[in-house]
Design a protein around this nucleic acid. Sequence first.
DNA 1: TTGTACGCGTTATCAA
DNA 2: TTGATAACGCGTACAA
Lengths: 384, 384
Amino acid sequence: MQANFGNRLPKIGDSRTLSGKSLNRMGIVKNNNDLPQLDGSGPTMVDVARRAGVATSTVSRALANPERVNEKTRARINAAAHELGYTPNAAARNLRVGKSNTILIILPGSLHYGVSQVIPQVLQSINQALIRDGFNLMIANVARDADSERHILDLAFGGSVRGCISLSEQLPADGGRSLADLPLPIVSLLLDMSDASLPSVVTNDRQAVKEAAEELIALGHSRFFYISGPVGNYHDVERYAGLLEAAQAAGLSERDIVQSSPAASFQVGLEAGVRAADEFVQLAEKPTAAVAVSDDMAIGFVSRLQRLGWSVPDDVSVISFDGSPACEYYNPPLSTIVQPVAEMGAAAVRLLLERLDKADARDGTRLVIPSRLVHRGSVGRPKP
Amino acid sequence: MQANFGNRLPKIGDSRTLSGKSLNRMGIVKNNNDLPQLDGSGPTMVDVARRAGVATSTVSRALANPERVNEKTRARINAAAHELGYTPNAAARNLRVGKSNTILIILPGSLHYGVSQVIPQVLQSINQALIRDGFNLMIANVARDADSERHILDLAFGGSVRGCISLSEQLPADGGRSLADLPLPIVSLLLDMSDASLPSVVTNDRQAVKEAAEELIALGHSRFFYISGPVGNYHDVERYAGLLEAAQAAGLSERDIVQSSPAASFQVGLEAGVRAADEFVQLAEKPTAAVAVSDDMAIGFVSRLQRLGWSVPDDVSVISFDGSPACEYYNPPLSTIVQPVAEMGAAAVRLLLERLDKADARDGTRLVIPSRLVHRGSVGRPKP
DNA sequence: TTGTACGCGTTATCAA
DNA sequence: TTGATAACGCGTACAA
């Protein structure tokens, strides 16, 4: 039950000795100096300095380079800071040193269900890794509209951001400004943008699908249905390539892979899977195994197929990509290629932090963290 | 292919006319003044002012209060700003005005699968609503460890944050400092914390479950299995209460509701559902309908039940809460109570923005946005 | 309508 | 080892 003096602070104090606020805080509002004063603007370094009987520069040193200040005074300063509940003002620090401690994560504007599944994990692992080094995490969606792009550019050009982790296929840009032009470290996560000189952390999309397809082939499958993502999408391209490579390595050809018509966007993955099933059941010569570019597409596919009276894996085996937890509890349990998203997030942070303040933060580094297929009931031998 | 002068900037320039950096930027590095200079620290107001032939204060006004400056000069200033690619420095602005434009969202440290499902949507809706008013979104996880709590407190006490949206059951605090003590607007989302004077945006957990249970009762069900969340959890308490109220209103008693043993945490929702199924099949007198506190629990429950040879909804009807998109594609499709998370996120932003800079930002406002039951195949009449 | 002058809270430079 | 002082870039009284 503490009086709120926030709206009647003296406008001007004797700034040579005490700021108006400090004067109010230290002398008028409260006599007990041991608690932080909660008038909306906490104690500053001058308050700590005064209480410890030193200069502000000494306080600054004691906090930033403890070894460069006498042990005794350092103790006094720490005590004073603690008693006052002092927390350094980030804006002042950022302004003075010319940089911030904020990392921006750029999420694709249209969060499709597949990526939705992994985003919380990604955010958590990234945040955890950043906190350890004192960095903050800011979030941005790059949607179609100019507003969201401008927002990101303001953040970057306004010095609010020290580096970026991007999950988006393209970097924001408007008329005059482009993130690509700013000497700001940017790491791409999930998408390989090393060609564009963005260090990238990806999984082995192509190889993982190839290995999974090899297992299908070993089981006797020789004709495949590929449930496609959006046209030109990195994951779609890579994962299809993996399937094709496995087929070709086994002496099969591209004609042994039937592709569903492309998903309009990943956003409608579940629904795209349904439509793929509708296409599947109309095929004259049916593949015996389906490979879906994402778990949600597989779920939509299986769901519709079962409703139409087909059986998985008896009529068709299904494998997909992402590793959504729910796959294990589907009926049948869905085999899926699990991405180690937490590791990937942590790796992206590492790559990014290594490049902070480096003259040349952009390079073609490409860090691949392998995914692994989890075998479940959705896969079996083809019917004879 | 532009030279990088970043590490050999003149240490000292004539500060009365040009800063060292500006001098470098304007005169030495490049003769073409029409493009933003990308030496890592963009053009400042003085650069814009010089180019437009006015004082910096006029530039400041032209940008913040366009109506208070002559149309002609304003045009010159805007042109100059655009040509230079000027973006205001956020740290300087924040320092000067004593506040930031950053909103912090506090996520529970242990993201259980259920909440995971809605987090991307929540983030997106919140972010979109914030951007419209020029605010940024920062993200924090409150985990068990002191580090993450301290991180949040540093953010708040360091003035980096203007307001919070919390999805967590408790506010971070360490020895001396507590978020609760800071006169910082905080809105609780999903959890009703209006008792603690945190304006809250929630759904009608209790009423929605009650209505759903009434429908089950109307179908003839009179004995229920409740798949519990963690002990004491707000959602668990409310949703169970809804079920109980419906039962009692129909002349049933608490003994007609069998509760599964509580989930260790929401984090293991899918697995908790599996364990609930194991308990269910061992009941002597079996309920004919199950109500799960979250979708993931329902999925785990149904999954296990089916594998044990039971049928949904023939042997037991199932209803759950959250509205995960995947429910529609389960087999059978799962009836679920859909939370309007996007609306709730937007509402939380509105409540928060209304309270910024208000003397008394804390109050018991409780905004309820109703959920609605979506009927699907997991519900039917009880077997005679 | 515009310009001058100052300070927000911090860190870095220099001198003591 | 410590202290005085000058910026960092911007917003805002106040004066012109």
